[in-house]
């Protein structure tokens, strides 16, 4: 080995060490301690010594509340894709045209995404107050009857309401990404299509959409992971209620951990959440995103 090669390696080591140290302290170590915690019965103080094997996993997976939480996560994942993808695409395509007030419209669509999630949650919570909230006021004003227990207080309505708020919050990200993707489509392609006699609609579907593929796949990935880990908005709006109608895996583990001091169960739930996210991310990376990296080579 040459002297230069050795030096280069040392240099790489030196530059990588801080990043690795941060990764170790803030990612690997917490994951490892969550895994360790999940095998013990532990109340949050004193020595961790009551080893219970897989008992915590058994309790988590056998708990109806946790199963419902997983179902709610899946509903949010699927609904996000089904609703936000077409809506985001449509808005992005509209805003990509040269229309009046385009800048203003783009800003309006994007503002909710920039707003802090907790602040947005508190505002929506007040808007959705039964009887005294603005939403109920508008519904009554047009002559309809708002739900007796409010949108967030009725178990059947809480999850759909939560989803509407989440869509309002995250549509901006989809639109922004799709707009950026559309901007990457060269004008010549549109011109060529037009010369061949394609209308606006045809150009969008046949030219823009296929070229948006990589962007859409990236957004799908972000959306899925975000939906699986959804916590802030649920916690502020409903805390997982009413009657556990809006629990997610994240609210379940916080509830078990910091509220009930069942740190072992919270640890097991967090490991399950981690595994689900990890497997999905990995599969997505291997099966779907890979196409994008391969074609670029």
């Amino acid at each position: 080995m040459t002297r230069g090669g050795w030096r280069q390696r040392l240099e790489i080591l030196l530059f990588v060490t801080p990043a690795l140290a941060l990764l170790g302290v803030f990612v690997v170590w917490p994951i490892a301690s969550a895994v360790r915690m999940s095998f013990y019965r532990w109340k949050g103080f004193g020595p961790m010594e009551d080893f219970v094997g897989l008992r915590n996993y058994d309790r988590v997976l056998g708990d109806d509340v946790f199963r419902d939480a997983v179902a709610h996560n899946v509903v949010i994942v699927v609904a996000s894709i089904v609703v936000q993808l077409p809506l985001g695409l449509a808005i992005a395509m509209l805003l990509n045209r040269k229309i009046r007030l385009r800048g203003l419209l783009r800003t309006i669509v994007f503002v909710p995404y920039v707003m802090a999630e907790v602040i947005a949650g508190v505002i929506w919570f007040q808007l959705l107050q039964p009887r005294y909230g603005v939403v109920d006021g508008i519904i009554s004003a047009v002559g309809l009857t708002p739900p007796e227990q409010g949108f967030l207080g009725t178990p059947e309505l809480a999850l759909p309401t939560l989803f509407v708020v989440l869509t309002w919050k995250y549509l901006g990200l989809a639109v922004l990404l799709f707009l950026a993707g559309l901007q990457g489509v060269p004008d010549e392609l549109y011109e060529a299509a037009q010369l061949d006699g394609a209308g606006w609609w045809q150009t969008q579907v046949r030219v823009a959409l296929p070229l948006l593929g990589p962007t859409i796949r990236t957004w799908l990935f972000l959306s899925m992971i975000g939906s699986l880990q959804q916590f802030d908005m649920v916690w502020v709006l409903t805390g997982g209620g009413p009657a556990n109608a809006t629990t997610t895996m994240a609210t379940y583990l916080i509830n078990q951990g910091t509220q009930r001091h069942n740190y072992g169960i919270a640890g097991a739930a967090s490991v399950v959440l981690f595994l689900v996210s990890f497997v999905m991310a990995l599969a997505y990376q291997l099966l779907i995103l890979r196409r994008d990296t391969v074609t670029q080579e």
Partner: peptide, 11 residues
């Protein structure tokens, strides 16, 4: 109305 989602003492 909405007591299922009413907080105890905030606001």
């Amino acid at each position: 109305a909405g007591f299922l989602s009413t907080p105890a003492q905030e606001g």
